[in-house]
Each structure stands twice: as structure tokens, then as C-alpha cells.
Nucleic acid binder design. Structure first.
Lengths: 123, 123
DNA sequence: GGTTGACCTGGAGCCCGCTCCAGGTGGGAT
DNA sequence: ATCCCACCTGGAGCGGGCTCCAGGTCAACC
């Protein structure tokens, strides 16, 4: 039994992923997205696997991974299953950076809270 | 009794705040920093109050506040104590954004963890 | 079969936030 | 007295990540 094999228009992918159409085209142009299938008229028809890749891209972007590093990751994916350990290492390293991002954000937020408290105290 | 009134060289401020000297000059140029005191030779001598302001700037920058908004905040500070309620509002609004940043980061991190687990499961 | 609107391409432009440079002055340790 | 290094200014340049545009093609609905 195969999973659903669906096809999505650009507008649907924009809706689904939150990326703009310009951004999707840009990602394809730089190779962050595999060349997307086209219909007879040359319009993009995205696949489930494009969608799922874009889901991961969304996670990595939103956690601050630079595009250059996502490209390296994309190359590992293309290179085949033997790169899975490398992919794990890359993601784990990124995860550590995300963790410290959260810690820093939380610490700085405390500084902001202090300032707010101070301002309240002098009202 | 007055607090310590000290004066800091550019190098000390760089050390203390983590901003580069170029960044400090840039912040002064755009008015995010009040015109800094100078010695006879025209070199900057930062005050305690510069340092403390830079501490707040560090919190706001690290939590993603755009420079334009920090400038608005700086103007409120210059305008005097009657703007304290506005400052509180501004900081609280920013705090809410920081909170949702942390939430988003945490959610995306879960997506990354899932991917790592998946990769581990297929090894 | 006409109109509207989604989509296409290549390439230029933009915004943010620094960062770097050239060319020069002054301070302070030896 | 000399050296070196920190610091100064104004202005240009940069890197990242899109974003916008002109000019054109197709599709789909009335």
C-alpha cells in the first residue's frame, strides 16, 4: 500500500508552507529544492515529498540555520542513505545551537522583565 | 551617597558589552547611543549610564527587536519620565513577541528531534 | 471566445545591520 | 625620543535572504 500521491499547485504550497511563491522559486533556483515537476504549460506541480522537505526546511529556517548549511544538508540527502549518520550529526549540532538560542532568549527576556519591573516601581 | 562614577575606554566597553567598536560607533552615529563623552584627544570615554543603556540594548537586540524600534524607545527615554507608561507598553509588547519566538523555536525544535529520531530508526 | 488571474523567466533591487578601509592623531610604556 | 597601538572620521562595501518587476504564456470559467 502506497501513501497518498498528490500534486500541489504553487498557491497550495504557499498556503501550506507559509513560504511566498518568490521564496519557493528562489529555493528551487539555488538548489535548496530539487527541480520541481512541471505540467505541460511549464507550471510547477509540487509533490508530497516536496512538501515534506519544505516542512523540514521550515523547521531549520525558523531555528536560524543559514541557507548555506541547509544546502549542505540537501546535498547529503541527495548523496544517498549512507550519509544518514552525517545528517544526524548535522542536525544534532544544530539542535545544540537551537538549545542555546532558547537559553539566551530566556535570559535576555529576564533582563527585559527586570526593566519593566523597575519602570513599574517608579510610577 | 552617589554610585560609582567610572569612565570606560572603547576597548573596555567592547569587552564588557560584546559589541564591536564599529558597532558602538554605528550606534552612536544613528542615535541609538547618546553622543558619548570625549577626552581631550577626542577619544570616547563611556559612562556607567552608557554601559547600562548598552545592557538594555543587548537584551533588545538579542531578542530580535529591530533597530528602528529601539530608536523609538530611545526617543521615549530622552523625552523624560512622563513616557514611562509608553516604555512599559513597548517593552511588554516586545516581551509577548519574545514569548512567541521561544514557543516557535521550541515547536520547530521538536520537528528537528522527530527527524533525528527517524534517521536513527532507519540506521 | 474573451477576460481574469495564476503562473512563468531572468535579472535587478532592496533592506538590515553591520564591517571595512584609508588616512590620520594621540597616548603611554620603554 | 621613539615606537606602537588604540583610537578617530567619513564613507564605501558587504552578505544574507529575499522581493519586485517587466513582459509574456496558459488555464479556466462565464
Amino acid at each position: 500500500m502506497l501513501g497518498p500521491v498528490s500534486v500541489y499547485t504553487p498557491a497550495e504550497v504557499v498556503e501550506e508552507t507559509g513560504f511566498t511563491l518568490d521564496t519557493l522559486r528562489y529555493y528551487e533556483k539555488i538548489g535548496l529544492l530539487e527541480p520541481v515537476e512541471r505540467n505541460a504549460a511549464g507550471q510547477r506541480r509540487f509533490s508530497d515529498s516536496d512538501l515534506s522537505w519544505l516542512g523540514l526546511v521550515r523547521c531549520l529556517r525558523d531555528t536560524g540555520m543559514p541557507i548555506a548549511q541547509m544546502l549542505r544538508f540537501a546535498e547529503l540527502v541527495r548523496a544517498g542513505d549512507h550519509t544518514i549518520p552525517d545528517r544526524i550529526r548535522l542536525l544534532e549540532e544544530h539542535d545544540r545551537r537551537v538549545q542555546s538560542q532558547i537559553a539566551n532568549l530566556t535570559a535576555r527576556q529576564r533582563g527585559i522583565h527586570n526593566k519593566i519591573s523597575y519602570y513599574r516601581s517608579v510610577l
